[in-house]
Simulated scan of single mutants.
Amino acid sequence: MFHDLQSIWREEGYPAFCVSPGDLIENGAPANYALAKREILSNLDPVPFYPGIGNHEYFPTEQGGAWHTAEEYSAAWGRPLCYAWTVGDVACIMLEQPQEQWTVDGMPLILLSPEALAFLDTTLIEHANRTAIIFAHCPLYNTVLDRDPERNLDDDSLAPNFFVSNSEEVRTILARHHKAALYITGHTHSGWGSPRLVFTESLGAHAITHLNVMSPWYTGFTGPKYNQEHQELEFLRDTPDVQATFSIQIYSHKIRIRARDHQAQSWLAEWEV
Rank of each mutant, 00 (worst) to 15 (best):
F2I: 01
F2E: 08
F2A: 09
D4N: 02
L5R: 11
S7G: 05
I8C: 10
G13M: 04
G13N: 11
Y14G: 09
F17V: 00
V19T: 08
P21R: 03
P21D: 15
L24Q: 09
A31H: 09
Y33V: 06
A34M: 13
A36C: 12
K37N: 05
E39W: 00
L41V: 06
S42T: 13
V47M: 14
V47F: 03
G52V: 03
Y58L: 13
F59R: 10
F59I: 02
E62N: 14
Q63Y: 10
A66D: 11
A66K: 06
W67I: 02
H68C: 12
A70Q: 04
E71N: 11
A76P: 11
A76W: 15
P80H: 02
C82L: 04
A84I: 02
D89N: 13
D89M: 15
C92R: 02
E96Y: 00
D105A: 10
M107R: 14
S113K: 09
S113Y: 01
A118E: 12
T122A: 12
T122E: 07
I125F: 05
I125S: 11
H127R: 04
A128C: 06
A128M: 12
N129E: 12
N129Q: 12
R130C: 14
R130N: 11
A132R: 05
I133V: 04
C138D: 06
C138K: 13
P139C: 02
Y141D: 13
V144M: 10
V144Y: 02
D146F: 00
P149Y: 07
E150W: 09
L153C: 02
D154W: 01
S157P: 06
S157W: 01
L158I: 10
L158C: 14
A159T: 15
A159P: 08
A159Y: 12
A159H: 15
P160D: 11
V164G: 15
S165E: 07
S167A: 07
E169W: 11
V170E: 12
R176Q: 08
H178T: 12
A180Y: 06
Y183L: 13
Y183V: 03
T185P: 10
T185M: 04
H187W: 15
H189G: 01
S190A: 12
S190Y: 07
G193F: 02
G193S: 14
S194Q: 04
R196P: 02
R196A: 13
L197D: 14
V213I: 10
V213D: 03
P216A: 01
P216F: 00
W217E: 10
W217K: 08
T219H: 05
P224H: 09
P224Y: 03
Y226S: 15
E229Y: 04
L233I: 05
T239Q: 05
P240L: 00
V242W: 01
Q243A: 10
T245S: 15
T245G: 14
F246I: 08
Y251I: 08
Y251C: 11
S252T: 08
S252C: 15
K254I: 02
I255P: 08
I257T: 08
D261G: 03
H262T: 13
Q265M: 06
L268F: 11
L268V: 01
E270K: 00
